[in-house]
């Protein structure tokens, strides 16, 4: 999909592209895809060629990595991982959400080491910063 999108952009500039292929790519192009500011130069888009993240179906499809298991068991008492997997937040927003989950929603507060592991995991995988 990523490749197609890039291909389309190139295709618009290079009329030599096979018409049939171009038509297909055009139909796949979604002008309302969630993306960076449409006015931003194309180079500012995050590296979209990054390899697909490996996820663990046993852990609600959280990305594999240190802290996945702690995060899973800490977080699924109330809601599914789907709300977590949608996020791309600043570190500060994750810190805030952590407190909100404890103070407003009644999340059990784990030991400081576990807190650290989970917050690091969240900030690594669901970040707008990295």
């Amino acid at each position: 999909m990523t490749v197609k999108t890039i291909f389309l952009r190139a295709g618009l500039l290079a009329p030599a592209v096979l018409a049939a292929t171009a038509a297909l790519a055009q139909q796949a192009y979604d002008p309302m895809r969630p993306a960076a500011n449409p006015l931003a130069p194309p180079t500012s888009a995050p590296a979209s060629a990054a390899p697909a993240v490996e996820t663990d179906p046993e852990l609600g499809n959280l990305p594999v990595g240190p802290g996945a298991e702690d995060t899973y068991y800490q977080c699924v008492a109330c809601h599914s991982t789907a709300i977590i997997r949608q996020q791309r937040l600043t570190d500060e927003r994750w810190d805030y959400l952590w407190t909100w989950m404890i103070e407003e929603q009644g999340m059990y507060e784990p030991e400081p080491e576990t807190t650290d592991v989970i917050l690091t995991y969240l900030k690594t995988h669901f970040s707008s910063e990295r």
Partner: peptide, 17 residues
């Protein structure tokens, strides 16, 4: 696929439906 769309990387969202 939330894990994918969460990256906000500008790829075609419908491709992940």
């Amino acid at each position: 696929d939330a894990a994918e769309s969460a990256t906000g990387d500008g790829t075609d969202r419908r491709g992940f439906l």
